[in-house]
């Protein structure tokens, strides 16, 4: 069974504190009273919740949540730059999801200010992933340009991975 961590889900929910009533209702409608940061949740259930929230609150709100997820996450002290956090975003995913076929996030640098991120995790959630990548850089005072590469997108069913180009 594929699962998503309650801690990551909690930070997602905390990021939506401005819309607390709407989020509480959506979570309750999904059959859960409250998110337990110590628990693990069915990943399809979590992704379905992301979908509902995006549909209800719009793309901008989900990008903002993605940003806050990586801006506020706890990292080891050696992760002290945008470059290191982007390089380690795959490990961050591996800490927050478990089970067979959860997907991966890899980072490859084109130059010192441009990285290509290949993602098979967060399927159908390009908006959230864009926010996560923005947040990773903003944590270190960098406002990046995050572009979804053309030609392949899981959400649009034009490929089996999403590619993001992060540059600043």
């Amino acid at each position: 069974m594929r699962e998503y961590s309650g801690a990551a889900l909690s930070s997602f929910i905390v990021g939506l504190s401005e819309h607390q009533a709407v989020v509480d209702k959506l979570v309750a409608d999904s059959g859960v009273d409250r998110i337990d940061p110590e628990a693990w949740y069915d990943i399809e259930w979590a992704f379905d919740l992301f979908n509902k929230i995006e549909k209800k609150l719009g793309r901008a709100a989900v990008i903002k949540v993605g940003r806050s997820m990586t801006e506020t996450a706890v990292y080891p002290p050696e992760v002290d730059s945008a470059e290191k956090i982007l390089s380690g975003v795959g490990s961050w995913w591996a800490l927050n999801a478990r089970g067979p076929g959860i997907g991966t996030i890899t980072c490859e640098w084109e130059d010192e200010h441009s990285a290509v991120i290949e993602c098979t995790a967060y399927r159908n959630h390009c908006t959230l992933m864009t926010g996560i990548l923005e947040g990773a850089c903003m944590r270190y005072g960098i406002t990046p340009l995050v572009e979804h590469g053309p030609g392949s997108c899981i959400q649009q069913e034009t490929g089996d991975m999403c590619v993001y180009r992060v540059s600043w």
Binding site: S114, L145, E147, H148, G149, P150, G151, R165, S167
Partner: peptide
């Protein structure tokens, strides 16, 4: 028409 992004352009 092929999805040009700003990073491609630069």
């Amino acid at each position: 028409a092929h999805g040009l992004g700003y990073s491609d352009l630069t």
